[in-house]
Structure formats: structure tokens, C-alpha cells
Write a protein that binds this DNA or RNA. Structure first.
Length: 117
RNA sequence: GGAGUUGGCCAGGCAAUCGUCGCUUAUCGGGCAUUCGUGUGUUGAUAAGGGGAGGAAAGUCCGGGCUCCAUAGGGCAGGGUGCCAGGUAAUGCCUGGGCGGCGAGAGCCGACGACAAGUGCAGCAGAGAGCAGACCGCCUGUUGGUUAUUCGUAACCAAUCGGUAAGGGUGAAAGGGUGCGGUAAGAGCGCACCGCGCAGCUGGCAACAGUUUGUGGCAAGGUAAACUCCACCCGGAGCAAGACCAAAUAGGAUCCCGUAUGGCGUGGCCCACGUUGGGAUCGGGUGUGUUGCUUGAGCCAGUGAGUGAUUGCUGGCCUAGAUGAAUGAUUGCCCAAGACAGAACCCGGCUUAUCGGCCAACUCCGACU
RNA sequence: GCGGACGUCGUAUAGUGGUAAUACCUUAGCCUUCCAAGCUAAAGCUGCGAGUUCGAUUCUCGCCGUCCGCU
């Protein structure tokens, strides 16, 4: 297995996982995105994404945003501590270009790893 | 060459690196089940191979398949469709035809049955709006007045009893059109032509068309996306349907109602059919399990039938199946510079969004031969 | 994914084919020393696009938006 893989162990899969994060989270906020994190007992960080239909209307855009968030997480995974992260999309998220979203996420990952360290 | 109409097709490409979801094969390791054992099944990791969104995947507006309720049966209610014929699993779709409208043409558009069955509706304006109606006007008569007079009356004015649908005016709409006759003035009152209805005949499966036929006699005004009538169609719910596994809408406790001409069984009511209690609360326990899930009214090619939609036969092909949900990111090159946009049970249509490009057939205009 | 309901002044609601109504709000005036209350007046709406009709908020169709229910 390569170093930058992204398999099912690295995702939040069930509502109980999400509840765990929401109940006691360390935030990292920007106008378009909110990141919530909480330390887990695993050996790697895990990612969950919520973007509601109300915030981003088109399925096509929701898929695009989720792909880019996953891709960014995959590339920055080695830098992150062992935490569960939930990415919450907000209104206006679909206005960002791919480049803008990547740089925004990089900032937020760094902020999170500082706070959780 | 320009302008246009119709039908069909494509939906950026290539390379490198990293990554994602199924499938197949191989290797490795562990657990479980089974076996005396080899082994087999299941599961995990790695590697390789091959596959992985659309023409609209969208809206959910129709029609079906499939599943459960009864094998979905009868009636009422309700809803839908609406020129004719054909196609289809079926349709509100498609094809061909008819009729009407638009266009110079190729072509395009049309909820296009019935108001000479019944009931209703039409504000304001206007005299009158429904087996109509007299405001102005036109005309006969009567009465009164004035003028003229051949003393019989005549003309004009006013009032009034009537007649009249030609003209004016109102309105979205005022009960055929033109001409001649006719009349006090008029009028389908009569006649001619045109238009219209009904019947016959001819052509056509039919819608409908034609008619040098007969007849009516000018009505039967408009409106059915008003009720309604006529013809045809429709049982309800939806994969969060449903099925399987485990104790699993279970089993248990308490209370209330009911005890059969009753209750329940899925979505209006009655019948019929099936079944035999129903409801509330408490307590306990528990899945984001497996399946349904992709081979299908499937696609491609050839050929036969048909004007066509479509369909018969033969051969070939397998082309997403996720379940917090997969096609992406970065870089480089090329060009016509990339729009709208992401499957969630599956098909057939319709509608809506959409950068551009290609092909075929046809129409009109111009030039040349 | 499936099913259902609703769009009328800034807000909450009426309106069954003929000039779109009511209350609060807003603005102006009167009243008051001033404010509030009260009185008077004004302004401001049928989600969008087609169709039927003489005429559409109303009837029909298509879009757009909002809300609700079903693991």
C-alpha cells in the first residue's frame, strides 16, 4: 500500500462516528467551511464530509467539492495528528474554484494540527 | 456562394504521477465452518489484467415491468383522455392521413367530440344580451297648430296609437352577404347568385372530401381549460416496495374498548373475499446486516415485410451497480478552446437546461456553364 | 430516492371569471409643551412564462421557489 492511499478505514462511516465528533469538537472556521476535529484512539486521522442539499444545490457541484476535499485530505494526511475530522460545507462553497479550495483547505489543516497538537 | 427547414450523430483528445469502486486471476497470512486428512467454502492484504455516469443521468408530468395487499372481482363515487386509422408491453407517446391556421417554399403549429339533450354564464356600455330589442331615425293613421289653397286637400311642426331591423350609435358579441323586385316605410316577404343545414349518391376502413341530385328555408348566436352528455381508459401503494438471518412488527406486564349484523386485512364508500379480537402505556432488546441489484419490451450488423412508426428472421456482443455512496487531482502538449450537468430498482415517452461541431435529405435566392 | 402541500402589499390573512380587501407596519397632517395613544389621509401586492376567454388572482399547461412526511 502506498503512502497516500485513502481506504475505508480513514473515513467516518456511521452516525455514531459523527456524533462522537460533534459532541466535543475542536473547530477551525472559514467563511465557506467549518472543520470539526476530535482525537481518536486509532493510528491515523479519519475524515467525514457533510454538504447539505440546502447549501449547495446541484448534485454535480456537491460531488466535485467532496472529491476535492478528499483529495486534499489524502495529500496532507501524513501531516495531521490522529484525529477524527468532520468537514461541514456552508453557503457559497460552490462559488470557489478548485485552486482556491485547495489553498483554503491547506490553511485549515495547518490550523487544526496546531490546535490539536 | 448565401439564407433556411427537417432528421441523425458526437459531447475535448493524448501522455505521466498519485488516488477511488466492482470483477477476474495469482501469491501470502490468519481466523471460522466442514473433513481422519488432502481439500473446499468464507474473510483480509498485495500484485497484475480488464471495466466504471448522461443526452438529458434532471423535473417526476404520463405509461409499463417488478413487489405486497386477494388470482384485483362487481357497483357507485372520483380522475384522465378526446378528429380518424395504425404502431406498441402500454401511454396523454410515435407514425400516416383528414380538417383549420401560418409561411414565398422546404416545412411548422393546433386540448381538433357534442351548445339544432338539459342547466348555467356574459361586469361596464347600450334601446335591446337570448325563442332579443324601438334611443335617434324612417313610415301609415289620429289630434292640434301654422302656411298655402283650385276649398277637395297638401306641406311643415308638435303630441300620440302603431308599423319597421334598411341607416346611426353601444359592445368582445346585436339572429347570413350582394343585387333586383316589392312596400306606407321596411323586412328571406319573393327571386337570382354566393354561403349554410339535412337527406341521397360517389370515393375512402375511417376522419373527411366531392356533387350539373333533391330538399329546407335563413334558422340552429357565443361559451363545455362552465356543469354536463357521449366514447374509451384507470383497484391501491410504492425498492424507505418486499424477502431472508438472528429471540427480532417477537415473547412479557398493566389498563381501556369490544365480544360477532362486530373488529382487522393499505389509501373514498357498498358488496364480495380472507382473517379472528383491537387500542394505549410500561419495560426489555436491537442492524445503519444480507438480498432485491442488474441479461434487459437490451445493444450492434445483415436481410425480409411496411409509405412510415414498427416488426419477422439470422449472426454477434455483455456494456456501472455504489450504500456517508465510486470516474478525481496535478503537470505538459494539441485543437475547433470544451456548455448543461452526476446513476441509486429497471425500461418507454414528454418537458426543461445546454458551448459548439459533423453528416444526410430538401427549399428559396444569386452567379457561371 | 419516493410521496404530498403551498406561493396575494414589508408581515399575517380574505377574495369560486368583471375596479384586488382587512389589520398591523411605513409616510404625511391634526392633536400635545414633547412622546405615546387617538383621529384623518396617502403609498405599497397576485412568483415567472405561455394558453383558453371579450376579460384570468381565479380555469389549463410548463418552469421557479418554499415547506412537510416516509429509513
Amino acid at each position: 500500500m502506498g503512502e497516500n492511499h485513502f481506504s475505508r478505514e480513514l473515513r467516518l462511516l456511521t452516525p455514531t462516528h459523527f456524533e462522537y465528533v460533534f459532541s466535543n469538537a475542536i473547530p477551525s472556521v472559514s467563511p465557506q467551511l467549518t472543520l470539526l476535529a476530535r482525537k481518536n484512539d486509532k493510528l491515523a486521522p479519519r475524515l467525514g464530509i457533510t454538504i447539505s442539499k440546502k447549501r449547495v444545490k446541484r448534485a454535480h457541484d456537491r460531488n466535485r467539492l467532496k472529491r476535492i476535499i478528499r483529495e486534499s485530505f489524502r495529500l496532507q494526511r501524513q501531516v495531521l495528528p490522529n484525529v477524527d475530522i468532520v468537514v461541514v460545507g456552508k453557503s457559497g462553497l460552490d462559488k470557489l474554484s478548485n485552486q482556491e479550495l485547495f489553498s483554503l483547505l491547506n490553511k485549515l489543516w495547518k490550523k487544526l494540527s496546531q490546535r490539536c497538537a
